[in-house]
Amino acid sequence: MAKKYSMIINLAKCIGCQACTVACKFQNKVPEGQFRTKTPANGLKGTYPNVSQYFIKEACQMCQKAPCVSVCPTKASYYNEDGVVLIDVDKCVGCKYCMTACPYDARFLNKETGAADKCTFCYELKVSKGEKPACVSTCVGGALMFGDLNDPLSEASQFLAKHKGEVRKPELGTHPNVNYIYEGVVK
């Protein structure tokens, strides 16, 4: 059965250490100054001393109805057999149409290849070998989870059954496969 890989980001557990950011750069050899994932501070609220803020991991949201895939003129952006959005670097001409279409600013033009680049869930290097993406396995606070939502017994499915996952910009109808848990966070 086809997989439905999903990442779950439990914001209350994220301490903003950027271990995910660094692990991704090493794993995927992302050029200097460019990022497939980063975790900026967000939502600074309140007045001193009652202030709050949280960190939010940003990367490709792995949309099931991905605008980048539908606009790509060469089919370089595609869904693989497990529903993961990937880029065939050989087919990409670097027209940047996908970058104008992505509402999450998840894509960039790789300085070294000239092709569009983004998070792959570490599909080739890790997930296809039964491992977890580099950011998930390195996460210090245990804020990141990864698994197959089509398997009701997976850790990800079990967790989402008990907690409310939210996707970014649901109004755009992109149906992302990255779920955010806002429990314990002042939104």
Partner: peptide, 20 residues
């Protein structure tokens, strides 16, 4: 283009769903 010399691939790989 990010890869100007590969512009011919636009003629080779067609996506009828893409306006471009």
């Amino acid at each position: 283009l990010g890869r100007p010399f590969s512009f011919w691939k636009l003629l080779l790989h067609v996506n009828m769903g893409s306006v471009m």
